[in-house]
Amino acid sequence: METILNGTLGGLVAGIATALGAVPVLIGKTLSQRASDTLLGFAAGVMLSASYFSLILPGIDIATEQYGSTLIASLIAGIGIALGAGFVAWLNSSLPHEHFITGQEGADAAAMGRIWLFVIAITIHNFPEGMSIGVAFGDGTTSGISVMTGISLQDMPEGLAVAVALIGRGYSRWKSFLVAALTGMVEPIGALIGASAVSVTHEILPIGLTFSAGAMLYIISHEILPETHRNGHQNRATTGLLFGLILMMILDVTLG
């Protein structure tokens, strides 16, 4: 129960960080496309670093202890990564949603309001992040805090980017803020599910850790990086990615 509680609270912290990041839109602050791409690159770097240092490597270490073989541990990690990426790919193809630039994807979305298409798109993005936090707490409090801190840091600029993008689509400041905050609240739900799953038995922890990593890696490649390279700001986005990766690596080594 302690693991489940800590994991859920960790997801809640990340969700609140998303809402806090969107607060500036209420006082009239805007975000340039260049800054938005830089911050999204930073988010990708944080997620990339967290995937490897906080999820994949610990998953391999735990599986090696369980089975006494680095080969088996590596195969388990590979299966977990593939399952996580496949899960998000399935969500992406099954649920109707809309991206800020590429437009509508998934199932038929003609009957749904566009604001809900945005909500679903960001939910697909945030849910695996929440799962990652919950699963990481199953590996130990320090690992959970490391992942929670890194994801919360990248959730703040992400919340602002979402709110600003919605304002650009014609929504009011308050509505844009509330939608951005709402998308963050899916993270404690994902954290609850992730922490509960690994609390049932320690044996599934390696799969849980690498599954979460695979889900985030899919999001990085399919969602974030293409968005940051569409407007000619790829150099800034790459700089943001490297800074986010290094920062998360330092956090993981220091806290973990």
Rank of each mutant, 00 (worst) to 15 (best):
I4H: 12
N6I: 14
T8Y: 00
T8Q: 06
G10W: 02
A14C: 12
G15W: 00
T18D: 12
A19Q: 01
V23H: 05
V23C: 07
V23N: 06
L26M: 07
K29R: 09
S32V: 12
Q33W: 12
A35R: 01
A35Y: 00
L40F: 13
G45Q: 08
V46E: 09
S49H: 09
S51Y: 14
Y52L: 15
Y52G: 13
L55E: 02
I56C: 00
L57G: 13
I60P: 10
I62W: 00
I62R: 08
G68Y: 08
I72Q: 05
L83Y: 11
H99K: 10
H99P: 04
H99T: 11
T102S: 14
A107P: 00
G113Y: 05
R114Q: 08
I115L: 02
I115E: 01
F118C: 01
V119Q: 12
A121N: 09
T123H: 09
M131E: 03
S132F: 02
S132Q: 08
G134T: 13
A136N: 06
G138N: 04
D139L: 03
T142Y: 04
S143N: 15
S146V: 13
V147Y: 07
V147G: 11
V147R: 10
I151N: 09
Q154M: 15
Q154L: 14
Q154H: 13
Q154G: 09
M156P: 14
P157K: 05
G159H: 02
A165K: 10
A165L: 14
G168L: 01
R169N: 09
G170M: 14
S172V: 07
R173L: 05
K175Q: 09
V179T: 14
V179C: 05
A180R: 09
A180N: 06
L182W: 15
P188R: 09
I189M: 08
I189Q: 10
G190T: 00
L192M: 02
S196P: 13
S196R: 14
S196M: 15
S196C: 12
A197R: 08
V200F: 03
H202K: 13
E203S: 15
L205F: 05
L205H: 02
I207W: 08
L209M: 08
S212I: 07
S212F: 12
A213S: 03
Y218M: 08
I220V: 11
H222G: 15
P226T: 10
T228V: 03
A237F: 11
T238F: 03
G240P: 14
L242E: 09
F243D: 06
G244F: 00
I246N: 00
M248D: 05
I250M: 04
L251H: 00
T254Q: 11
G256R: 03
